[in-house]
């Protein structure tokens, strides 16, 4: 169980791994917008080339990306089939029955949608595989800083998030331990119908909650004993630095983005 959540990061040494997490986060948010913008054949060619380039640069085996696609596979197949059957009139009509028809235009549209799917999933997988969760958190906290101007408690949220990330593995281990302990006393997890399964989770949830609250109490007392007062008036130990490689990566992508806008059918 515990391997699922935090085992997704792959500690390899590549350019992508060494990039500043802020650069990667901003890129992956921006990338989604770009996928929405692309609508012509050439804009897709550029998008695919940029994505494949990034994947190659990360030195990660393609198999890991295929694993990322699996959970959304049914949605991809469903969408492609529906798109094909309800395709608009255009090009050669291969099949026609009542309101269902398959046309050349429909097949092209379905293909583009499948590519979109794969691109979006692959880039988000790339971000996860090349960035440690703690770096993602530090990067996000740093990107949220401008929100201080609208009085969002960014520092407190960052502190909560780092506490949360620190305790995910601990609580995960604890959950597995409690499950095993209850199994040893006869609880069947994952047996019977939906309601029976949900009911069997009570002997897991109650101890897990209690343990989390006890930990919260202990931690808060320990933090105050170490001089913690608030999240604002403190200094930072973990400092992110923006290198030249981050600027260069952004330049490369900015050129690609500009090219996509040029080749887009407006």
């Amino acid at each position: 169980m515990s391997s699922i959540l935090f085992g997704r990061y792959l500690p390899l040494d590549s350019v992508v791994h060494r990039l500043d997490p802020r650069a990667k986060l901003l890129l992956s948010f921006f990338y989604i917008v770009l996928v929405f913008m692309a609508n012509s054949l050439w804009s897709y060619v550029i998008l695919v080339a940029m994505t494949l380039g990034a994947i190659l640069a990360s030195k990660i085996n393609l198999g890991f990306f295929l694993k990322g696609i699996r959970p959304l596979l049914w949605l991809i197949i469903f969408t492609v089939i529906v798109q094909m059957l309800f395709s608009p009139v255009g090009g050669h009509t291969y099949f026609h029955w009542a309101f269902l028809r398959i046309t050349t235009l429909g097949i092209i549209t379905a293909g583009i949608i499948a590519v979109r799917f794969l691109l979006i999933i692959m880039t988000s997988t790339l971000l996860t595989l090349t960035t440690q969760p703690l770096d993602i958190a530090t990067g996000l906290a740093s990107l949220m800083k401008p929100l201080r101007w609208v009085k969002v408690p960014v520092d407190t949220l960052a502190m909560m998030l780092s506490i949360a990330l620190r305790f995910v593995p601990t609580l995960m281990d604890e959950a597995v331990k409690i499950m095993n302990a209850q199994r040893a006393r006869g609880v069947d997890f994952g047996e019977g119908n939906l309601f029976k399964q949900a009911h069997s989770l009570i002997p897991l949830m109650i101890p897990l909650f209690m343990s989390a609250f006890n930990r919260a109490e202990d931690l808060s007392i320990a933090m105050e004993a170490r001089g913690y007062q608030d999240s604002e008036h403190r200094s930072q130990y973990r400092i992110l630095t923006w290198h030249r490689r981050d600027t260069i990566t952004w330049l490369i992508f900015a050129i690609g983005f500009a090219a996509i806008l040029v080749f887009r059918r407006w």
Partner: peptide, 14 residues
């Protein structure tokens, strides 16, 4: 309360 909120966020992720 702050630590509890953090812990609840961890529970949510778990």
């Amino acid at each position: 309360s702050m630590v509890t909120l953090g812990m609840l966020m961890a529970l949510q992720l778990v």
